[in-house]
Design a protein around this nucleic acid. Sequence first.
DNA 1: CAATATTGCTCAGTATACTGACTATCAGTA
DNA 2: TACTGATAGTCAGTATACTGAGCAATATTG
Lengths: 154, 154
Amino acid sequence: MKDNNDMPGHLARRFQQIAVAVFLAEVEDAGFDLTPVQYAALATIKANPGLDQVTLAGLIAYDRTTITGVIDRLVQKGLTERRASSRDRRARELEITDEGRKTLRAITPAVEAAQRIMLRGLTDKEANDLMRLLRKAIAAGNELSRAPLREGST
Amino acid sequence: MKDNNDMPGHLARRFQQIAVAVFLAEVEDAGFDLTPVQYAALATIKANPGLDQVTLAGLIAYDRTTITGVIDRLVQKGLTERRASSRDRRARELEITDEGRKTLRAITPAVEAAQRIMLRGLTDKEANDLMRLLRKAIAAGNELSRAPLREGST
DNA sequence: CAATATTGCTCAGTATACTGACTATCAGTA
DNA sequence: TACTGATAGTCAGTATACTGAGCAATATTG
């Protein structure tokens, strides 16, 4: 019988599991307390000042119901500000704080180290191949999850 | 600046997200209600009758605190039996029920379809390459997560 | 412009994952 | 055999993800 551990779905889960563990370990070693999800959100807020939650969710492929809690925690940590939009009173505008900017800068080496560590079993060429193939598979399946990636507004 | 969406950690998360969505959609279309995690656990219990929870967790790389809830749900659905071991009173022996066996058989086509769909953007060669590279990266990082894969007892 | 549809966000509920702690039990050893 | 350490399982707490529902506000349309 075919080994269940060899199915793409299982490999996906396992690789993600390792990636998160490596990220958290490196970031903690660097003296910070930030999850991969929080990091991506924070970096995206910095790159797109004043964006609303739905746009942010689309830019990093998070569910809109997930982003609420993520931002709650970023706000609670003092890394992000959330305020009502004046143009659309349903929306919240997000801004990174000085503290958030500082954290993002300081944490970057750990984040980059983590990316290397999670690929440490591969040669440079293999790592590039893996990322290319993942990108391709993800692009083809983008619309299949509830939280697809939505490119910048144009 | 480097796009955060292009980091291996983000690709891992995104691919896993799509894989789970595809799995759930296919299984639901087939008329079943089983998560990828529950499926893997059930299949492993069937292949290793009477195994205990820690061994099961090791075989599919789940955390031991996660497996408790997964088995709770399999038992509640009538697919698995959990009973105290006579040899070691700390341990629980797991068995698949007839209903579990029937479900596993009936669900297989949907599971296989899901694996194809999550790779649908890739050629056969690319799909094989992706899986080979994932296996290699995972093997190198196995010990980095709290729930590493533990091969069969030997 | 009134009725309708859509959108931004939140909430309640469920299912992984993990941290850390705790109980019960087992195994090894002085 | 009493002591010590390790192991099996559970529990409480936190953080993603997602389903489905709902509210408030905006957009669309007849």
